[in-house]
Amino acid sequence: MNQTNDEKSVALRASFKRAVMVIVSLFILALVLLYIDIIFGDSLYSFTDVMDVIASRAPSGITFVIGELRLPRALTAFACGALFGMAGASFQRLLHNPLASPDIIGITEGANTAAVFGIVVLGISGLELSAFAIVGGLTTAIVVALLTFHHGFAPQRLVLVGIAIGAMLNAIGSWMLIRADQWDIQSASRWLTGSLADSDWTYVIITMITLAIGLIAVMPLSRQLDMLRLGDDVAAGLGVKVGLSRAAIVIIAVLMLSIATSAVGPIAFVSFLAGPIAVRLIHSGSSAIATSGLVGSCLVLGSDVIAQHATGTQFPVGVVTSVIGGPVLVVLMYFSMRKESQL
């Protein structure tokens, strides 16, 4: 009896160890990518240069390039990647469906279109813009939910309704961008595919604070999310306040997602990819929300490095994430349709 006791706690400790290992490795990877993103560019800088800038003893040229361009860009990439990843995984786990990530079911598009409207029509920025994007994201979430839950809940319908709503919102967003003729393609690309080119310290501060709040809020909620994955009735029978928990998770997720979107646009497929990758790394029944955040950071940072330095031309980061995410979406869609038709 004692022996099996020990075996079990060994097994438990092993899965815990694995989770810690994965998280630490991802964090180190994110830091390395962050560093690469900062030092590479038209001119290559060294570690001492970066340290000098942080300690504000570097020459003004370097201070500008690193302090005003590359550092905010890389930090925004880190924070927004994490926000997209955590929000995406929250939705996917809550709805028991990897296709139900907010960038597929129209919610990111809702936040994005609201942001485009805010910037193009109202001319707002910073916190105001974030608030506007949040309203857009929440409204879209409510609309998609109402259209889906009309006669009971069907996950596959949610995805179809969401894709349709997202496409409509995208069209509206593009139309507004075209109408606003002062916008060049470079700036517009932030709202079309997502881009880090406009990052500045305002957005670093906003997204980092959101990340901190999101992490604090997500930790207790991820336990409830773990329970909700057993099904609503089982969770409720075990004392989870299902409606309340679900509402809290949706609100936090939409908040994280909308603020990230207002800062960098709808960087394609990061929300969608982060969760499934994290689960495969951790390999347990847990929701892996924080891990998904780190995967999101690595995805955005890695894609930005590729977008900027891999070829002669510089792309918006969203182009790279699309190239990675598109095929994965097709494969997942294919298997989920096959599963449906077997039922």
Partner: peptide
């Protein structure tokens, strides 16, 4: 009821 993918019996 449906168990989440990959969950172990002990975890469940």
């Amino acid at each position: 009821p449906i168990a989440p993918d990959g969950i172990t019996v002990f975890d469940l």
